[in-house]
Nucleic acid binder design. Sequence first.
DNA 1: GTATTTGCAAATGTTTTGCAAGTAA
DNA 2: TTACTTGCAAAACATTTGCAAATAC
Lengths: 164, 164
Amino acid sequence: MVARAKTEAKKEFFALLARRKMRLTSQRLAIVEAVFGTDQHFTAEQLLAWSRLRDPSVSRATVYRTLPLLVQNGFVQALNLGKEETVYDPNYVDHPSHSHIICTDCDEIVEFESEQLAEIESQIRKQLGFQVDSMTLQVTARCGEFRRLGFCQKRERCSHRDPS
Amino acid sequence: MVARAKTEAKKEFFALLARRKMRLTSQRLAIVEAVFGTDQHFTAEQLLAWSRLRDPSVSRATVYRTLPLLVQNGFVQALNLGKEETVYDPNYVDHPSHSHIICTDCDEIVEFESEQLAEIESQIRKQLGFQVDSMTLQVTARCGEFRRLGFCQKRERCSHRDPS
DNA sequence: GTATTTGCAAATGTTTTGCAAGTAA
DNA sequence: TTACTTGCAAAACATTTGCAAATAC
């Protein structure tokens, strides 16, 4: 399911390009359609592959040049999970305040929302005087089921990897 | 100020080595003394420099081999701030539940604690059934003062960098 | 027409690793 | 003694960049 907000976001991205007198090339188009056409987290390499399905002429360099544009303008969120590659989350536009639970049993990422984060933001503002730009909560946890069953009933996403 | 907990932690680290039949080499000693001898965040490169003050024979490779041992056993926390290098935080043993505010005005890192994090953990456990291993909250924010004054009165740490 | 953008390939910078020599227990 | 560790230098890896050719407007 790709939410309405993503369709809006795509329009906003085109508007951003226009505002900055940047050109809407076929490569940029393929990349942003790939980004706004998924709910899944992705790496730069995956985005390259997805973009090439739409336009084979897209190069790795252009993907790496486009990603900061998307991140810096709030269209996707960059997650540094301590792994080698940066993971990008396209769901930021739909759920700006969600957090990520990384399951150490199966390495999958589960999203969740907590209204407590807004409280923390207000604490930071009032007690420390900072103006908050972004908050990223990363939780590593074990879903337990994976250990016991070899897969996660609770989280269908958690069933991809072999136990090691 | 290097808290008592760090002295304890050092002992625990030696015990860990013994338990795993790993050897206490002069290089490992220099590295962990450097780690537990500071309250400052550091990069692998900085740790190499600090360690070499204690034992010039420490190599970059040994630092990179020792860091995962410290991280995986909860002696330091690894922060992936989206910058190039990983930053390590030696204050985890003193304040396991603290979070980090990265000031985008001056790139400095401010630590703070919030009891709300514990509430979120309990939510995750009860509502989603995960057993939480670690929580990292990273906030990017602007302290404002830097913009106005060119430095931060509020946070002495915020006065290192030139405005750009 | 022309300023922006592209792909390519080389460069960068951090982190990892193979291996032979060194060393703690 | 002998299994663990080390330093070195090369490798690996994601990401960035210079440049000449291509192209949106």
